[in-house]
Nucleic acid binder design. Structure first.
Lengths: 339, 339
DNA sequence: GCCCATAGTGTTAACGCTCACATCGGGTGT
DNA sequence: ACACCCGATGTGAGCGTTAACACTATGGGC
């Protein structure tokens, strides 16, 4: 994809601006980089020349000599999902605020190979740092194989790898959700879990068990989901058949949506008969039937913290940081006091 | 964010590889660019040297001399929403397949200024082409102000601007949805529209009117939404109060979700008393109560076509293309034959 | 009246790569 | 045996920028 059309006058470079302004190219460079030591009147002449020629600095030349690309890379898994999409957005905003461009490499399967490929693609572009959103053990492990010397931060990758990371405290969030249900008078809480091999699934399950144990409540067997509404629906059909089930904590909102439908079909009313809590707070949550109580994560903050960690990493301040953000419970209408 | 740590041995460049392999830097370059005319044995020696030194070609230097950055830019509005997120994903995949890197510039408000800023940010990175996802008139108009000479394609931007674009045939999709409802025996179809100033909202409304007119059905006044579930809910409360309403076409799935809840609260059963159709086919659609009949768009195809258009644009084949993809109706359980 | 600091500007040399061209052997045709 | 071609490699220049340093006025301190 070369410049449109073939023989247009090649675009202006620094020397052209210099000639037009009657100065040396170095003075142009100084104006461009906000050096002091340029007479205001000269600066104005240069700026005018730039405007006239529609001058656009050549980023490649600049990068070549400064050795700084001002670009960050993001590796992300299926950026269509709400979680990853929100994180990408948060990171992009934070990166821009910090003066970086953002380059993206998305992968459609979470494997060691795909992750490493994506990282290499980013390295070819000489990014100055990489944020990897690869929320699965097998993929997160791949991060350990990334050569040192390139700043790398994992997001939502659990403690599987030694890579610095920022994430949400899933265990705490899940425990809060479960405690909320327990405090409502339920004797125990059932759980529809995420798939094995996903740190977030494991941590949420752990938080659920923890809260159950600390309340001395019996621990029912968790049902396995795969994050999809379908899996939530299927698990829900089984749960709906069991009249002793009065409270369910779902590892994410999509599964909660499926559960809600299964309960509805089985004629079990929410929240009168069964209380439901999700995790993520997707935009649809407040409009489910009934509006879903769920655990909310601050994705904007995740983005900002990733940036911060990346910078600290580069300056060598904190070699192996781990940042954990505490999510908050959004109580809506899918949970109600039993008494 | 400089390379981590300060005094590490600067990374290997082409000359280092050449020296180690006992050839000239030019031969290394030839190996790198898959030129023929390199003896297999020499090539092997060079590759081995690269491996040994962990050589990474300097993209800035290459870009400087070839004048090709191999990078495409995407301007997108709130990439958290399902539509934009899916398009970004589709475009990224297609771009990668075509050998391009992808740089992202997201904006949080759709205005002339924000769009132009984002495009400039991308220009600074000397991208070879830009795909703009700015589905609002005021933002799309800004695209006309972009200097020629840079390949630009709009996605989902309607016919507001003269910029080449690819999009979904919203009018056709809406007409299909409305006809489906009419064919079910409904005397007319109500409409919850998207906000004014959005091409997609306008086109979907037009398709709805068109189908109504062609069937000779009366045209009820459309209700105004803003794409959010909340607005769908509010419009839904009004619709639910009117017993004559038996069929509703929503301009997107999120509003349909809100509508579904409003109908449910008012005790109006879907699909027995009221049929509902949405637009987008978000992943949650099959698990709403009841599973939502909706219009599905092929975002992967949108991505591929954008790429294709960008390439044609650069080679000058087709100065002002417009590509329209036909969406398909997904019939589920929220619509049912009246008779 | 001289010196030296300093503001303002110019000159030159990289940065790491690709392109165009030069070179150097050994076949091949006549 | 000579010219010629072609495969395989090397040499030198140049892409557009910034960094380092050099230079020229101007002005204040003594």
């Amino acid at each position: 994809m070369a410049r449109a059309r073939s023989s247009q006058p090649r675009s202006a470079v620094m020397t052209d601006v210099a000639r037009l302004a009657g100065v040396s190219h170095q003075t142009v460079s100084r104006v461009l980089n906000d050096h002091t030591k340029v007479r205001p009147e000269t600066r104005e002449r240069v700026l005018e020349a730039m405007r006239q020629l529609d001058y656009q600095p050549n980023s490649a030349a600049r990068t070549l000599v400064t050795k700084r690309s001002n670009t960050l890379g993001i590796v992300t898994f299926d950026s269509t999902l709400f979680g990853p999409a929100s994180m990408v957005y948060g990171i992009e905003q934070a990166a821009r605020a910090a003066g970086y461009f953002v380059s993206i490499a998305s992968i459609n399967a979470l494997g060691r190979r795909t992750v490493l490929d994506a990282i290499n693609r980013l390295r070819e572009q000489s990014v100055e740092g990489i944020v990897a959103i690869v929320p699965k053990d097998s993929a997160a492990e791949a991060l350990d194989a990334v050569p040192a010397g390139i700043s790398l931060v994992g997001v939502g990758i659990g403690h599987t790898s030694g890579v610095p990371m920022v994430g949400v405290d899933n265990t705490a969030g899940a425990a809060t959700a479960t405690r909320h249900l327990l405090a409502l008078g339920h004797t125990t809480v059932h759980h529809i879990a995420g798939p094995a091999g996903w740190p977030e699934a494991r941590e949420r399950r752990a938080g659920w068990r923890e809260a159950l144990a600390e309340a001395g409540a019996p621990e029912p067997e968790a049902l396995d989901g795969d994050w999809s509404s379908r899996s939530g629906y299927e698990a829900g059909r089984r749960l709906a058949a069991d009249r002793s089930v009065t409270a369910v904590f779902c590892a994410n909102d999509h599964m909660a949506l499926g559960l809600l439908r299964a309960l509805h079909e089985a004629g079990r009313r929410v929240p009168e008969e069964v209380s439901v809590v999700g995790f993520d707070d997707i935009p649809e949550a407040p409009f489910m039937i009934p509006p879903l109580t769920t655990v909310q994560q601050d994705f904007g903050e995740v983005g900002r913290r990733s940036m911060q960690l990346l910078v600290e990493l580069a300056t060598g301040d904190r070699p192996h940081g781990q940042i954990l953000l505490t999510p908050t419970l959004q109580v809506r209408d899918s949970t109600r006091d039993l008494r």
